Lab assay of single mutants.
Amino acid sequence: SLSVDNKKFWATVESSEHSFEVPIYAETLDEALELAEWQYVPAGFEVTRVRPCVAP
């Protein structure tokens, strides 16, 4: 099958004044980091952490 098993990760994104967490959907932690950097670094943010979303 061609289905992709995307998992939810939380990326911590920082600017000079703010820090916030955004959801990233990817297959692996490395891919989540790449996606977060691709989305947020060009906008002037720094991705400081990516972690798996742990269900309660």
Results as ranks from 00 to 15, higher is better:
Ser1Lys: 09
Leu2Val: 12
Leu2Trp: 11
Leu2Asp: 08
Leu2Lys: 11
Leu2Phe: 13
Ser3Tyr: 09
Val4Phe: 11
Val4Met: 12
Val4Ala: 11
Asp5Lys: 15
Asp5His: 15
Asp5Cys: 15
Asp5Met: 14
Asn6Trp: 12
Asn6Cys: 15
Asn6Met: 15
Asn6Ser: 13
Asn6Lys: 15
Lys7Ser: 06
Lys7Cys: 15
Lys7Arg: 11
Lys7Ile: 10
Lys8Phe: 13
Lys8Gln: 07
Lys8Pro: 04
Lys8Trp: 15
Phe9Val: 00
Trp10Ile: 12
Ala11Pro: 00
Thr12Tyr: 07
Val13Cys: 05
Val13Tyr: 05
Val13Trp: 03
Val13Pro: 01
Glu14Gln: 14
Glu14Arg: 14
Glu14Phe: 09
Ser15Val: 05
Ser15Trp: 07
Ser15Thr: 08
Ser16Glu: 10
Ser16Pro: 12
Glu17His: 14
Glu17Gln: 08
Glu17Gly: 13
Glu17Arg: 11
His18Pro: 01
His18Tyr: 14
Ser19Val: 11
Ser19Cys: 08
Ser19Glu: 05
Phe20Lys: 03
Phe20Gly: 01
Glu21Leu: 07
Val22Leu: 04
Pro23Gln: 08
Pro23Asn: 04
Ile24Ala: 01
Ile24Val: 06
Ile24Tyr: 03
Ile24Leu: 04
Ile24Pro: 01
Ile24Glu: 00
Tyr25Pro: 02
Tyr25Asp: 04
Tyr25Cys: 06
Ala26Asp: 00
Ala26Ile: 02
Glu27Leu: 13
Glu27Tyr: 13
Glu27Ala: 14
Thr28Asp: 06
Thr28Arg: 03
Thr28Cys: 05
Thr28Leu: 02
Leu29Val: 06
Leu29Thr: 04
Leu29Arg: 05
Leu29Lys: 04
Leu29Pro: 05
Asp30Glu: 14
Asp30Ala: 13
Asp30Met: 12
Glu31Thr: 05
Glu31Ser: 06
Ala32Thr: 00
Ala32Pro: 00
Ala32Ile: 02
Leu33Trp: 15
Glu34Asn: 09
Glu34Arg: 15
Leu35Lys: 13
Leu35Ala: 06
Leu35Gly: 02
Leu35Trp: 07
Ala36Asp: 00
Ala36Gln: 02
Glu37Ser: 10
Glu37Gly: 05
Glu37Asp: 04
Trp38Val: 10
Trp38Ala: 15
Gln39Leu: 15
Tyr40Gly: 04
Tyr40Arg: 09
Tyr40Phe: 09
Tyr40Cys: 05
Tyr40Leu: 04
Pro42His: 10
Pro42Gln: 07
Ala43Arg: 13
Ala43Asn: 08
Gly44Met: 02
Gly44Phe: 03
Phe45Lys: 01
Phe45Ala: 03
Phe45Pro: 00
Phe45His: 02
Glu46Trp: 14
Glu46Met: 13
Glu46Gly: 04
Glu46Arg: 15
Glu46Val: 15
Glu46Leu: 12
Val47His: 05
Val47Pro: 02
Val47Lys: 01
Val47Gly: 00
Val47Met: 01
Thr48Asn: 04
Thr48Ser: 05
Thr48Phe: 02
Arg49Ile: 07
Arg49Lys: 13
Arg49Val: 07
Arg49Asn: 14
Arg49Gln: 10
Arg51Gly: 05
Arg51Ser: 05
Pro52His: 07
Cys53Ala: 13
Cys53Arg: 03
Val54Ser: 12
Ala55Gly: 11
Ala55Lys: 09
Ala55Ser: 11
Ala55Pro: 09
Ala55Arg: 12
Ala55Tyr: 11
Pro56Glu: 09
Pro56Val: 10
